[in-house]
């Protein structure tokens, strides 16, 4: 089973194909993505797709290349090689059209603290070309329980509240592709669970795809349809987070994560990955 899984993924990569999942056009198609800083390969030949209504977890230890991959998908980091397509639109050649369908939230990218929640949402709503902006602002404020902070400057909010504002901004344009880099890192367990439900609702009701990074394996198992394990810039494993640990002789996803983080080559079949 382990060898089969590795072989299938490896063979697809060797043949230059991005693995296909789900039906319909992928909301995100990443193909042979590489990023080198001098001799260091931060991301090395990464290919994957995210389908509509799919939440894909991008996992890996610190420095594995998760944020580098996300930055390339967001167009703020130029790949050394490879392509990024958002709903079939090439990011490199049609940046604005591709990014209009995208949005993101990350703990390291808070919204300007000197603007109120409402002002931030209005400014970014205009930047993303949102129609009926005022009603959309009201909708996301309600969705993320931010009405009472509407006229409060973001800088004075707690980190959890700021995270909710970032998520509201990420939803302002009802994106087809949502990138979330550790979105629940500063949230209490109850708020984090609510957030996971909202993101799940977003994929089912609006058909969007989500790329989600997290170090919380319980969360990943709960929310993600599929996970990609990155190690040293490469996708080492791919599969269903509920069945993947067992397929690799581990009891939990966390145990599998730790093994990949510490001894990636100890996994049976790992040497097959190009």
């Amino acid at each position: 089973m382990i060898r089969d899984t590795f072989s299938r993924v490896s063979l697809q990569r060797l043949q230059g194909q991005a693995p296909r999942h789900g039906s319909g056009q992928a909301v995100l198609a990443v193909s042979h993505l590489r990023k080198a800083y001098g001799a260091v390969q931060a991301v090395d030949d990464v290919s994957f797709e995210i389908g509509p209504r799919e939440i894909v977890g991008l996992l890996g230890p610190n420095g594995a290349g998760k944020t580098t991959t996300i930055n390339m998908v967001l167009g703020v980091l130029e790949p050394s090689a490879g392509t990024v397509r958002i709903e079939g639109i090439d990011l490199a050649s049609q940046r604005a059209q591709a990014l209009r369908r995208t949005n993101f939230a990350a703990v390291y990218a808070p919204l300007p603290g000197n603007l109120t929640v409402e002002q931030n949402l209005r400014v970014f709503g205009l930047i993303y070309g949102v129609r009926h902006l005022e009603s959309r602002i009201n909708a996301v404020l309600s969705q993320y329980e931010l009405e009472r902070f509407r006229r409060v400057k973001c800088g004075v909010l707690s980190s959890g509240e700021q995270t909710r504002v970032s998520l509201a901004k990420a939803m302002i344009n009802a994106p087809h592709l949502l990138l979330l880099d550790e979105p629940t890192a500063s949230l209490d367990p109850a708020t984090a669970r609510d957030l996971r439900m909202r993101i799940r609702d977003f994929t089912t009701s609006e058909g969007g795809g989500v790329l989600w990074t997290s170090h919380n394996m319980y969360e990943v198992e709960e929310v993600c349809d599929r996970v990609l394990f990155l190690s040293r810039g490469r996708i080492l494993l791919e599969g269903n987070p509920k069945t993947l640990p067992e397929e690799h002789g581990k009891r939990t996803l966390e145990e599998l994560f730790i093994t990949i983080a510490r001894e990636p080559l100890s996994l049976d079949g790992a040497a097959l990955i190009p």
Partner: peptide, 18 residues
């Protein structure tokens, strides 16, 4: 500088803003 001080580049340049 407002964008520098508020570290807003990632929010701006990861958007459709040219």
């Amino acid at each position: 500088f407002e964008d520098v001080w508020s570290r807003n580049f990632l929010n701006l340049f990861a958007s459709p803003l040219s």
